[in-house]
């Protein structure tokens, strides 16, 4: 009897039953601010499975690209197309973690519960989802703490846990470790690894070559608002096809 109660409390693996959003196809996407073209004619397809890393130096347009994919910005030209546009608007379709974590003035647990509530997760499922997300982030012991007094690394882990608590099919991470020290970076990367192993499609940006090598299955190399090169990660790092990418890998790229 207790056993069945416990198994019902487990989060149900709904992934397989959901209509797939992927691939996500960007078709001639440009983004402008005033007269400046910040992203220029981006054509990309993100498929299920692989962890995609958008790589590029500061100011390349990584954040803009991620926000365009997530739907927070509208392209000036071109289109962002999900394979199932209606499904892409569901609360469990996609989530994003921002370069600087944005936490509510509530407890750690309160932040996750808020996302579950607005994400229309059923009330009965919320406690299990909460515990699971806290455990993933290693924040179970801090559940009652005000979120905004956490350290930078803890805040980023909470933001990641909050996004993942919705069990999104696609998770966008914008430079999740940009302001963290190596130890905090490693913990976030471990979290990213566990989330990926649940089958969640991850599209993340970074300017950190080491991180791209550690995590990426495929690379989108962005420079000055244009996609310079895309491809399978190992090949990209071994034999970059363009001089720009080779220069970036050697640390010789001046932007």
């Amino acid at each position: 009897m207790t056993e069945s109660a416990v198994s019902r409390a487990q989060p149900t693996p709904t992934r397989t039953t959901r209509p797939s959003l992927l691939p996500l196809v960007l078709d001639g996407v440009s983004f402008t601010a005033g007269r400046q073209t910040l992203l220029n004619d981006v054509n990309l397809a993100f498929n299920a499975g692989a962890l995609s890393v958008v790589l590029g130096p500061n100011g390349a347009g990584k954040t803009l690209l991620i926000k365009l994919c997530h739907g927070l910005l509208r392209p000036a030209a071109g289109s962002v197309n999900w394979s199932d546009p209606a499904a892409a608007r569901r609360p469990d379709a996609q989530a994003m973690v921002f370069q600087r974590p944005v936490l509510l003035r509530r407890s750690v647990a309160g932040n996750i519960l808020y996302a579950l509530r607005v994400g229309r997760v059923k009330r009965a499922q919320r406690p299990a989802r909460l515990q699971e997300a806290l455990a993933l982030a290693g924040l179970s012991a801090m559940a009652a703490r005000p979120a905004r007094v956490l350290s930078g690394g803890e805040q980023q882990r909470l933001a990641l846990a909050r996004a993942w608590a919705l069990h999104p099919q696609v998770l966008f991470l914008d430079e999740p470790t940009a302001n963290l020290d190596p130890a905090a970076t490693r913990r976030v990367e471990e979290m990213v690894g566990s989330i990926r192993s649940t089958g969640t499609k991850i599209i993340m940006s970074t300017h950190d070559l080491g991180q791209a090598r550690r995590l990426a299955d495929e690379i989108v190399f962005l420079h000055q608002g244009s996609v310079v090169e895309t491809g399978e990660a190992a090949a990209f790092f071994e034999r970059p096809l363009t001089q720009t990418a080779a220069a970036f890998l050697d640390g010789r790229l001046l932007w």
Binding site: K67, L72, R89, A95, F98, V102, L104, V118
Partner: peptide, 16 residues
């Protein structure tokens, strides 16, 4: 200013 993007990302409607 601080929350708009995060709340849009969570698909929070105008009243919420």
């Amino acid at each position: 200013d601080e929350y708009a993007e995060q709340l849009h990302s969570l698909r929070v409607g105008p009243f919420a």
